[in-house]
Amino acid sequence: FVDVPGPCEPEDLIDGIIFAANYLGSTQLLSERNPSKNIRMMQAQEAVSRVKNTDGDAQTLTEVDLFISTQRIKVLNADSQETMMDNALRTISYIADIGNIVVLMARRRMPRTASQDCIETTPGAPEAKKQYKMICHVFESEDAQLIAQSIGQAFSVAYQEFLRANGINPEDLSQKEYSDIINTQEMYNDDLIHFSNSENCKELQLEKSKGEILGVVIVESGWGSILPTVILANMMNGGPAARSGKLSIGDQIMSINNTSLVGLPLATCQGIIKGLKNQVQVKMNIVSCPPVTTVLIKRPDLKYQLGFSVQNGIICSLMRGGIAERGGVRVGHRIIEINGQSVVATAHEKIVQALSNSVGEIHMKTMPAAMFRLLTGQETPMYI
């Protein structure tokens, strides 16, 4: 392991180490996604004062064993050795130590309905402004500082493993350097601007005969897209959708007859559209989008991985939080252009070569692979 400062041997942290402590209690806080260090300090102090005030002087202490490894942090009852808490290390947001107190801040899962409400009511709401639940566990120990340092070291060792798993050699860059690179990447926000402009959102009424299909092909918008909903990939000549003259290939469908399609699997969306067969009027809410997505990746140096992989011109994986995700890269999209050059007929090796040798600003145009196959006649449209 590359120079991970801390009181432990990194190998010991993989197996796990144990500290004795007293558990003082837990409390819950609401927090934005990535609060500043000052806000975190206030959160830690707030957690300590809440826990200390709960029971006052009559506070009962539970003697615990704190198990720390690069995988998880467990709290065991010192007497019975029963597991009281078990948190995956990656869900620990941060730790704080104040004198003989240690505060462990763990993220809680957001209720599914809350996350969906958020998407539906405020498309493109800044991620940082959303509130997330945080559970704060407070401990007391003479070794508080040592415990905090050991957890900090476990964070670093686990993060190095994560970087290696994503093809980044930690020896090539310090942790700070990598997070600096990430922070210099602006979120490519053309999508956000586009979705938040009400002129691009339309409500349409389509007329059709009873028993007639709508005459469309839909595809997924692709993992990594701002709004996970289906895209209109093709229209049947003379079908109700094409006849209306109100739809274009690339449009993202938000809802049909007041049923939201946002976040639903493709098959469910197809089922909803098939279910319209006996209707004579269909109401649709769409966002007009060009069929081609624009991507901008800023890569200051060849030593930084792009953070996505390509197979036969199609993006097949994306590193969460990497520079490519920030640039607008989406899984399942076919690369159409790189820096103004068409790569539609380019061999896979040449595309990989072009990407791996690109530094500075990398501009790409992409499109859902299924849409590309339909537009180029490689696939026969199955209209629904």
């Binding site: 990535n34 990656r90 869900t91 941060y94 899962r109 994560f162 997070s179």
Partner: peptide, 21 residues
């Protein structure tokens, strides 16, 4: 006494929805 904060570098790669209960 001084308050020290150590942030988990994995935090920025982690989806809040994926966090455990």
């Amino acid at each position: 006494s001084a308050l020290t904060i150590t942030i988990n570098p994995m935090e920025k790669h982690e989806q809040p929805q994926a966090a455990e209960e």
